[in-house]
Nucleic acid binder design. Structure first.
Length: 571
RNA sequence: CGGGGCGUAGCUCAGCCCGGCUAGAGCGCUUGGUUUGGGACCAAGAAGUCGCAGGUUCAAAUCCUGUCGCCCCGACCA
């Protein structure tokens, strides 16, 4: 491809609307242009790179026996009503105005419809079907360029199995294939265990990339062997030990003492003997959650424990219910002093299990209660993991301290189970002639995210630094000083040779552009190798090769150039 | 959906607070000339319904109301 006639609209200035590096660079390098919020046109350079990512995905999917197919983007809304997902998706789902159709945000329903009508025996499974297609989601807030768009390219695959063991196998095949795919794309990633959440099923893993542009917060061990969303992450933290003797309850005056740190300092007691009380609503029920010392409550974990939406209680409401303010609430006598209608639930973090000689609020402003024995003095409705892990805590698998980082989700794999088959009546006959629901899995990869994440991980002040696997072109051939007939002819000859040798080359043959401009553009576009044909080197029969990542320059005799380039391309 | 910001030439922005002559700059683009190893120089030029609608006014890019779009933070994210 020649830059003189190609469409690569580079820009010098950083676009005002772009904030993260990959977004800025994709615009500057002439890869994308926004058509509307979260809707992008992919220009030639970008699409070449996407095709490389898609080809890697295809190869690895095919390798596990998956079959590519192509599904409609439009689908009847009835299909989505059957599974209750019109409501579940809500405003995310794009509706077609003049027909009862929706633009598919994912394809479980269509796959399930296909399976229902055409897979009727255990002998026809397992099946893995995949598609690489455009998905539509009316994101409330598209952002970060191509990382979160309203229309995006997704590799989605779906497994159909007759047995749960079969599902496990299909799932494991995908997990292995995904690792290969992201590794081949040159991405540094980690695998995160995710909770099965509202989707049901028996397992889910996310493939995440560490990035400040990410929207998830992840705890990762030093060697990446443990990684989990902070919403579910745990760490090795010593529990409060149960002391041999439970001392008698004692109320102490603690004027203006509110926080755990203040209590610890004022009463000269260790954090390990302090129970922090926080009060939230779980649905319409007030919940007192006890945490050890200054542990921080994790909202997602609280929600899981209570099985309901949670929100912090309003200070006025708390005072009205308990007669005390936030800093003075405690578990002892709480139920007795609050109206029956309020019906407090009292739960505690696992670190407090069976603990005694604890200090907590006395449910009376400016007073705390010492020597609380959770078994003797109050009734705990349950112990749960409620605390938020902190950076530096020991990883649960004992591989050192945890880091807390932001991450972008590149892919997720999910054991769906029979949720969709049940809802849509997709059944087959097992080997005993008995009707069973088809067991499904679904597995997604965001293609644009691969590209954007790669750029996030591989760029410098000058521009993009492509990995060979995803680079739009392996080589960027630059003719420096095209007024020189020798240079122009030599560059043309090299371009022709490279083409004949099937080396991928972008040729900067522009005659009206200064050398500096070409070099800046080459660094911005970031092909792995720049092949520079200039007058001085040419006079000595040599051509210069600059490696983009290292900046290292080598000078190769013209006659040996092609062979040299071939080796670079294959290395 | 809550909070904040922005909308003026293809891009980056000034002008708006405090209304007033023909709406500006840099980059880019066109033409001619000079340049050619790190985003060149000179000259001439093309290019804007000032997001849109309504209002106030002798007069609106500027003030008021509404509306649409875009960005950021938060909420949401099967």
């Amino acid at each position: 491809m020649r830059l003189s006639s190609g469409f690569v609209p580079t820009v010098k200035e950083t676009p005002a609307d772009a904030v993260i590096p990959s977004h800025q660079l994709m615009i500057r390098a002439g890869m994308i242009r926004a058509l509307a919020a979260g809707i992008y046109t992919y220009l030639p350079l970008c699409y070449r790179s996407m095709k490389k990512a898609m080809e890697i995905i295809r190869e690895e999917m095919d390798a596990i026996g998956a079959q590519e197919l192509h599904l409609p983007a439009l689908s009847p809304i009835e299909l989505w009503e059957e599974t209750g997902r019109v409501k579940a998706f809500g405003d995310i789902l794009f509706h077609v105005k003049n027909r009862p159709l929706v633009l598919a945000p994912t394809h479980e329903e269509v796959i399930c419809w296909l399976a229902k009508n055409h897979v009727s025996s255990y002998k026809e499974m397992p099946q893995i079907w995949y598609q690489i297609q455009t998905k539509f989601r009316n994101e409330p807030r598209p952002r970060s360029g191509v990382l979160r768009g309203r229309q995006f390219t997704m590799k989605d695959s779906y497994s159909l199995d007759a047995t749960w063991e079969g599902l496990d196998k299909s799932y494991d095949l995908h997990a292995a294939a995904y690792k290969k795919i992201f590794s081949r794309c040159g991405l540094k990633f980690f695998v995160v265990g995710a909770s099965s959440g509202a989707m049901g099923g028996t397992g889910s893993q996310e493939f995440m990339m560490e990035s400040n542009a990410g929207e998830d917060v992840i705890a990762v061990s030093a060697d990446n062997s443990y990684a989990a969303n902070v919403e579910v992450a745990t760490s090795r933290m010593a529990p409060a030990l149960r002391e041999a003797v439970s001392a008698p309850l004692k109320e102490v005056h603690t004027p203006d003492i509110k926080t755990i740190d203040q209590v610890a300092a004022f009463l000269k007691i260790d954090h390990a003997r302090l129970a922090k009380s926080v009060v939230w609503w779980a649905g319409e029920t007030p919940v007192l959650a006890l945490l050890l010392g200054n542990d921080e409550l994790n909202e997602a974990k609280l929600m899981t424990a209570m099985g309901a939406e949670v929100r912090p209680i309003e200070p006025e409401k708390l005072l009205q219910l308990t007669g005390a303010d936030g800093g003075s609430i405690g578990p002892v006598g709480l139920r007795e002093r609050t109206p029956a209608s309020a019906a407090f639930k009292i739960i505690a973090d696992n670190r407090l299990k069976g603990a005694n000689n604890l200090t907590s609020g006395a449910n009376r402003n400016d007073y705390h209660l010492m020597n609380i024995d959770l078994e003797r003095d109050c009734r705990i409705d349950g112990y749960f993991d409620l605390r938020t892990i902190q950076p530096g805590e020991e990883s649960p698998n004992g591989t050192g301290p945890l880091r807390v980082v932001k991450g972008v989700e590149l892919g997720h794999i999910f054991k769906l189970g029979t949720k969709y088959a049940d809802a849509m009546g997709a059944k087959f006959l097992d080997e005993h002639g008995k009707e069973q629901p088809i067991i499904m899995g679904s597995y997604g990869i965001g293609v644009e995210r691969i590209i954007a994440c790669h750029i996030e991980q591989n760029h410098d002040e000058q521009g993009i630094i492509w990995d060979k696997a995803l680079a739009p072109f392996m080589f960027h051939l630059i003719a420096v000083g095209t007024k020189s007939k020798a240079v122009a002819e030599a560059a043309e000859a090299i371009y022709a040779q490279m083409g004949a040798a099937r080396l991928e080359v972008l040729f900067d043959d522009r005659g009206d552009v200064s050398p500096g401009f070409k070099f800046k553009d080459a660094d911005l576009l970031g092909m792995p190798y720049q092949v520079i044909v200039g007058e001085k080197n040419l006079a000595q029969g040599k051509v210069e090769i600059k490696e983009r990542r290292s900046g290292e320059r080598t000078f190769v005799p013209k006659e040996e150039l092609l062979e040299h380039l071939r080796q670079l391309a294959e290395a």
